[in-house]
């Protein structure tokens, strides 16, 4: 399907109550703040949010949590020096938490995007995060069966897109973007600039357009 270019509020209209939303970023690097602001305005709630962290400070993901729109967080590292919004919600029992090792978070979304049914992974063997999960010994080593994480919608931030939706990223703001783009039914990418087809070096494209449904240009 052809990638569309719209405003942020129109783009996040794809999110419905109860959806699983993949939110890019590692801390604030690569966080699609303007898309999240639009999602707050849009009003969808009862969301499951998958993101590395559970919000920093009072903006971006933290603002979505503060607005009471998130039922459950799936993340690797919720507790940080500036995660007071999440900490309060968690301690008062107002939000569910699933802690996932960071690499498993990435690989489970990669598996979703690649059509993999499940995979055996060495991470977490013998720890509380593997309790109750199927294990198997392969070549003498124990592995844990991990299932994909599918998103209904992915909100990511890239650097530059062409009109077809091919994306390039900037430095460590790339982080989860390319993986999340593959793992959701609808991927919305916030970019600093949209250029014409042919203006990006095809050898430098990181996320091919097939994974991107909607572009939102937010100059930075």
């Amino acid at each position: 399907m052809r990638t569309t270019i719209t405003g942020a509020l129109e783009a996040v209209g794809a999110v419905r109550d109860g959806d699983t939303v993949l939110v890019g970023g590692f801390g604030m690097a690569g966080m699609p703040v303007e898309l999240i602001d639009a999602l707050i305005e849009h009003g969808a709630g009862d969301l499951t949010v998958v993101s590395n962290n559970a919000g920093n400070g009072d903006t971006g993901l933290a603002a979505l949590l503060a607005a009471g729109r998130v039922r459950k967080m799936i993340c690797s590292f919720p507790r940080q020096s500036d995660s007071w919004v999440f900490d309060d919600l968690y301690r008062s029992g107002k939000i569910e938490l699933e802690v996932v090792p960071q690499g498993n978070l990435a690989e489970r979304m990669r598996a979703a995007g690649a059509g993999i049914g499940a995979f055996y992974c060495p991470t977490g063997v013998g720890t509380p995060l593997a309790e109750g999960k199927e294990t198997r010994v392969i070549d003498g080593r124990e592995f844990v069966l991990e299932y994909p994480i599918h998103g209904d919608v992915a909100l990511i931030r890239a650097h530059v897109a062409d009109r077809l939706g091919n994306l390039v990223y900037r430095k460590t703001a790339r982080n989860f973007g390319p993986v999340m783009a593959t793992a959701a039914r609808v991927t919305i990418a916030q970019v600093s600039r949209v250029v014409e087809a042919g203006d990006l070096d095809p050898e430098a494209v990181v996320t091919p357009s097939i994974f991107v449904n909607t572009l939102v240009e937010v100059p930075r």
Binding site: S76, F77, P78, R79, Q80, F86, D87, Y90, R91, L97, V99, V100, P101, Q102, G103, N104, P122, T123, G124, V125, T127, L129
Partner: peptide, 16 residues
Amino acid sequence: PDAIPAVGGAMDLAAG
């Protein structure tokens, strides 16, 4: 009981 669990990449590094 009051600690918020946060693992980050520690288990992946330990295993890998």
